[in-house]
Structures are given as C-alpha cells and as structure tokens.
C-alpha cells in the first residue's frame, strides 16, 4: 500500500485511489467544484490542484489535479502551498468573473480573499460554472440527453439544437446534482417541465402525489420489478413498515 505524505502527515492509502480521496480520508480538506461521488472524476474545475514532489526531485515539484492523480508511494503532497493557493485564486477569480452573482462561487472566492473579480466581469452573468456534473450524471446514469456545446468562451450546457431534448426522461438528476441551481425545472403532481420539455407524471395511487415521470418509469421498465414505480417511495416505505409490524405480530407504533 502506497505511503505518502500530505501536508506533513504520513498517510497510507489504498492502491489505485486518487489523491483527493486519500487526502479526504486522512481528514485533509481540498476544495472542489466538479467532484461528486456519483460520477467519475473529471478534472474540470481545477480547484483541487495540489503540489506533488519527491525527496529526490531537488525541490522541483509539479502541480496536479488531485481528483485524477493516482496515489504513488513516497510522494510528498502539499495542498496549501503558496503556489497552490495562488493558482486556485486565479481559478476562482476567473469563475467569479463568469458567475459574479452565484452564491457558491462568491463564497468560495471569499475564502480565498476575493470580494470582486480582478478580471472584466461577464456582461451576461450566468450561474453555470461548466463543471459538467449534469452532463456526466446524464451520461453515466441517464440517457445522455444533454451535453456541452461549442467551446471556449461560448461553451455552454445545452440540449441538442437547443430544443427540448428528445432523449430526456425528466428524472431531474441534472438539476439535483447542479451545485449552483443553474438548471431550472418546475414540477407538480400532474406535470414536470425541464429543458423546456413537458412530462406527464405518474401518480401514486395511495397518496396521489406525482412522484416520477411516465417517461422515466418507461425507461426503467424491465430493469426493476414490474410495479416498482406504481407507489411513491414514502408510501412504499409505509407499506413495508406496516408489513413488518404485522409480521412481528405487534401493534403499530405511533
């Protein structure tokens, strides 16, 4: 098992884990914006940069994104060196220029001592930090309905042709995972609208709540037991609890 030093602390990490994970397991915090346990690491936000060196490197060190750097035996990592902090400051400063009104970005910038961006502020402020979480979660767990389009300054998250995405099943995974609330949706017991696409809801026969879109239930069809989505989660739990109580022969605990 690789032994490494992170911020002066000797850490024994599991073979094949990434630096970010090893640091977190050792209780050392590294800031991230594009990381999420549900999806593969991406290395997009550049906030998790750390300095890596070895004793035999004569003071030379390299900066790596810790979320994508596999742990190696004998490396010395510093997560808060001046170089690291300065680089992260540039990254968050640029993000603040892009998203001046986004609370998450403002908060993180403030942690690095930035109240106002030192770059020219984006004339069309957006809440999208292009972390790619939405497209990745859609790729890995959904239907790949959305993607990033264009590149450079014009890059944005969009459904194909900027029209309601044909493959979208309205599962809301993209909106739920979005760290800034950029992806908007409306949902009620009868219908849900996301990416300008309207979905009909499947209603729970017990409580009447619209708990999943019909499109999503259809997409799961065959992957889960037949009538799995008929009842909503809350009612399913209630039914299970009631059944457990009956099986144990006791009276219901209120």
């Amino acid at each position: 098992m690789p032994r490494l030093v992170i911020d002066g602390k000797t850490v024994v990490a599991k073979e094949g884990t990434f630096l970010l994970q090893a640091a977190r397991e050792a209780g050392i915090d590294i800031p991230t914006l594009c990381e999420h346990p549900a999806v593969e690491p991406y290395g997009g936000c550049r906030m998790c940069l750390v300095d890596v060196t070895r004793p035999e490197w004569d003071g030379w060190s390299k900066m790596v994104v810790s979320c994508l750097f596999p742990v190696e035996d004998g490396i010395i990592v510093s997560t808060k060196s001046e170089r690291v902090m300065n680089t992260r400051r540039v990254v968050i400063d640029l993000l603040l220029a892009r998203c001046p009104n986004t609370p998450l970005v403002q908060k993180m910038a403030a942690e690095y001592g930035i109240e106002k961006t030192s770059y020219v502020q984006n004339p069309e402020p957006t809440d999208c930090i292009l972390c790619g979480l939405c497209t990745r979660v859609c790729d890995e767990m959904g239907t790949s309905a959305i993607s990033s389009s264009s590149r450079g300054a014009g890059r944005e998250i969009a459904p194909p042709f900027n029209e309601p995405p044909p493959d979208c099943i309205g599962c809301l995974a993209c909106a739920e995972i979005c760290p800034t609330g950029f992806i908007k949706y409306e949902t009620s017991n009868s219908k849900r609208v996301i990416w300008n696409k309207e979905f009909e809801m499947l209603r729970c026969p017990t409580c009447g709540r619209g708990h999943i879109t019909k499109a999503q239930a259809a997409w799961h069809d065959g992957k889960v037991p037949g009538r799995y989505f008929e009842q909503c989660d809350a009612c399913k739990r209630k039914a299970q609890a009631a059944m457990a109580v009956t099986l144990m022969g006791g009276s219901q605990i209120r």
């Binding site: 497209t135 859609c138 309905a145 993607s147 264009s150 042709f161």
Partner: peptide, 17 residues
C-alpha cells in the same frame, strides 16, 4: 447519443450547423 453528436458538431470550427 444525439447530444454527443451535437456537442462534437458545435465543438469543431470545421463543422457548421
């Protein structure tokens, strides 16, 4: 996925919609 095709189509300058 169509979204991927769209993404690639808009990424490269050699392509035009």
């Amino acid at each position: 996925p169509l979204a991927k095709v769209f993404s690639v189509s808009t990424f490269y300058k050699a392509f035009s919609l």
